[in-house]
Amino acid sequence: MAPGNQTYVSEFILLGLSDEAELQPLLLGLFLSMDLITFIGNLLIILAIIMDPHLHTPMYFFLSNLSFTDICFTSTIVPKMLLNIQMQNKVITYEECITQMCFFILFGELDSFLLTVMAYDRFVAICHPLHYKVIMNSKFCGLLLLASWLLSVMVSLLHGLMVLQLSFCTDLEIPHFFCELNQVVQLACSDTFLIDLVTYFSSGFLGVIPLTGILFSYTKIVSSILRISSGGGKYKAFSTCGSHLSVVALFYGTGLGVYFSSAATQNSRGSAIASVIYTVVTPMLNPFIYSLRNKDIKQALRKLFS
C-alpha cells in the first residue's frame, strides 16, 4: 500500500475506556486500587516463598516467577493510563508506545510459557512422583525459566523491530487504553502484510502450543488421579494442581474470549473494555487463588506477617 498523507510520527492518542469526564475519577480510583492490590498481593507471594525454606521447590520457584511477571505485566500498562487520566492528557509518545507494546508482548508471552512449565511440573509430580526430584532438578528448572525468557524476548523484539519499519499517517488515535500491537499496526500507511503474517503465525504457534501442552499435561494428570484408589489421595492430588488450573482457565479463557469477541464485533472500544479482564483483573486475582487454595502459601504468609 502506498503511504498517503504521511508525516513524521512523534506521538499517538490513547482514547482510553471512556470519554465521559464524570467517569474519569471513578476509573482513576478503580485502576489505582487494582494496581496496588496486584502489586502487594504478588509481592507477598514472592516474599513468602523466599522466606520459607519449605517452599524452595520447583512448583513455588515457578510461582514466584509468575508473580513477578504479573507485577511487570500490569506495570507496563496501568501507570501510564493512570497518569493520562490524572493529567487529563491522552498523549503517548512514539517511543513510549513502542516500548510499552514490546514489554506487553514480552510479559504476556512469559506468562503463557510459565503457566505451561508449571503444568509440566505438576504432570511430573503426579504422574512420575518417584522420578520427580531427578527430573525437576534445580539445573533443569533454571533452563526452563531461561528458555521461557529467551523465547519471550525474541518474540517481543521481532514484533518491535517490524513495527519500527512501518510508516504512519495523520490518523494516530488508538481506541484502547494501551499500545496494543494490532491497534498500532492498523494505523500504518505502509504495507502490513509481512507483520500481519508474522503476528498470526506467532500467535498461533506460541499460543496453541503452550495451551496444547497444558491440556495434554492435565489430561494425563486427571487420568492418573482417577486411578488412585483412596479418596484422600485423590483430594491431595487435585489440591496440588487446582490453583494452577484455575489460573490457566482464567488467563486463557479471558484472553481467548477477548480475541474472539473482538474479531466478531469489530468494536474496538468494546474490545478495550474486555481487555481489562486479562490485563488487569487476572493478575490481581492470581495471588488470591494461590493463597486461598494452598495451605503451604497460607502458612508461609502467616509466618511472614508474624
Rank of each mutant, 00 (worst) to 15 (best):
L30W: 08
I126E: 13
A264V: 13
E20W: 01
H128T: 05
Y218K: 07
M81G: 07
F104N: 06
Q165D: 08
M101V: 05
K236A: 02
M284L: 10
D19K: 10
Y218H: 12
A48N: 02
R302W: 13
L27Q: 05
F104H: 10
T282Y: 14
A48I: 12
F205R: 01
P210T: 06
L32T: 12
I297N: 03
M51N: 15
S239I: 15
L250T: 03
F140V: 06
G142D: 05
S203K: 01
P25N: 05
V163M: 09
A21E: 02
L82E: 13
L106N: 00
D35F: 14
L304N: 07
C127K: 03
V276P: 12
G207K: 00
S271K: 11
P3H: 07
G16K: 13
S18E: 01
L226V: 11
D296F: 06
F201M: 04
G213N: 11
S223Q: 15
G253N: 04
F103R: 05
T254F: 12
S67Q: 14
L215R: 06
F62L: 04
A249N: 08
S203M: 00
C179D: 03
M136K: 00
S152Y: 00
F113P: 02
S138D: 14
P3D: 08
L17Q: 05
L161D: 07
P175W: 13
I13F: 03
Q86A: 14
S230H: 06
T7M: 08
A263C: 12
T99D: 09
L304F: 04
W149H: 11
I221Y: 05
S262R: 02
I135P: 07
Y60P: 07
I228W: 01
S262P: 12
P3K: 01
M154K: 07
N182L: 01
L172Y: 06
F201L: 08
M87V: 07
E22T: 08
S271D: 09
M34T: 09
H54V: 05
L144S: 11
Q88W: 15
C189K: 04
I273E: 12
S261F: 14
I50N: 12
